[in-house]
Write a protein that binds this DNA or RNA. Structure first.
Lengths: 221, 221
DNA sequence: CCATACTTGGAATGCCGTTCCATCCATGTC
DNA sequence: GACATGGATGGAACGGCATTCCAAGTATGG
């Protein structure tokens, strides 16, 4: 059943998975599915988990902790890129098993990097948020491109066009980078983001401890 | 009309905004709304844009570029924390005006930091992804808490409980940080993530250029 | 052979985004 | 001051969806 869901999601995107479609593929009724899953959300989580388990299991092993983080992040990126629905599923079900699995594996390596115990959570949470954020954005891009029946390149071209049309008075930066948009490499950009994080972490470990003396406003707005 | 949408979203969350609810509040018919907006997505974008414009306008000014990035990020965090629907709206409409505005203002400061032109896009994209990722996660948490009629603290407590129940064999890291979950500070964690980024950027500017000689697989999977 | 518990299939329900169209109203024209 | 015109309105109707409900089927153990 999870396999069937994944197949439907791969073929029709996240909008393609309906209980009726799944019922038809399984040659059963929509109601029967509710005997095995509680929710549609449950279904998504189960499908996501199946994928995430595979990604983590297949994750190439060796190297330093930082290398392992990079490897896991890239494998995740590739999975999210292959299956845009995964990104939105993970983004919408925080605290579910797939997310926990990722958290665990990132956490182990962060710990192995020698981050002080009191900072582990913050560092791992930041990494996880970044990974999920990119995944979500990727998913949204893919979904939007699908709705307009555009390939990735044409879609980025359209965005670049829209950006160029903005008033240079108000949007100097955006306009200046618009031309670079159509042929940038999402995967490389993603990796650079990870590297920035890892560098930041390394700097903290080498230098002063992480608890920033920077004033952090704590009033509840 | 945008104001009415925002009011409904604030009261009832993202699920609360329906065309019928909006029509009732505006004492009109559902169809009339379609004269002014193309889509429900359009409506969300318009509402998001109104908020984002205010956040950016009210953003406290002074300080170094890095300080300005921190200030904008924190103001955004507070806005996203106040209005969980904003996070999911921004996450689902990439390339729309609110996102572009954020991109622009982050970009200006990144440029002011002295990041080489060829690396600007990557750095800004990473920052944006992080901010949106956190926003999306926050939104998902809030939505999930709302559905279970739980306050934030009780909700985190439940999650901590679930994490503690995991097999320590398989999830040593997650289990070890579970007790810290209920009383961590999302806002401080978010800021630390931003700081990690900024440190990573500073390190690159000070040291070697950003284009990493690290091998980046580029095959399309 | 039957009783019980598990499982199934599909009809019915209620909600939602979206479309459609008859109607209204303000504005500019003669 | 009547009138045509086009922007705006309100609400009914449609199609699709998740979810619920229940009558019917099926296997299992006595």
């Amino acid at each position: 059943m999870v396999d069937a869901s994944i197949a439907i999601l791969d073929e029709g995107g996240e909008k393609g998975l309906t209980f009726q479609a799944l019922a038809k593929r399984l040659k059963t009724g929509a109601g029967a599915i509710y005997w095995h899953v509680e929710n549609k959300s449950d279904l998504l989580v189960a499908a996501s988990d199946a994928i995430v388990i595979n990604v983590i299991a297949a994750c190439s092993a060796g190297g330093s902790p930082a290398d392992k983080i990079r490897a896991l992040a890239l494998d995740l990126f590739d999975a999210l890129d292959d299956r845009p629905w995964l990104g939105s599923a993970l983004a919408q079900a925080p605290g579910s098993m797939p997310t926990i699995r990722i958290l665990e594996h990132l956490g182990r390596e962060v710990r192995a990097m020698g981050v002080p115990h009191e900072d582990e959570w913050t560092v791992v949470a930041a990494l996880l948020n970044y990974v999920l954020g990119v995944g979500g954005q990727n998913a949204a891009h893919a979904e939007m491109a699908r709705m307009q029946h555009l390939e990735r390149e044409a879609f980025l071209g359209e965005i670049a066009l829209r950006l160029s049309a903005l008033d240079p008075k108000d949007f100097p930066f955006v306009q200046s980078i618009a031309p670079k948009m159509p042929d940038h490499d999402d995967r490389a950009d993603f990796l650079t983001g990870i590297d920035l994080f890892l560098d930041g972490i390394a700097r903290r470990i080498a230098g002063s401890p992480m608890a920033s003396d920077r004033t952090t406003r704590t009033e509840e707005p």
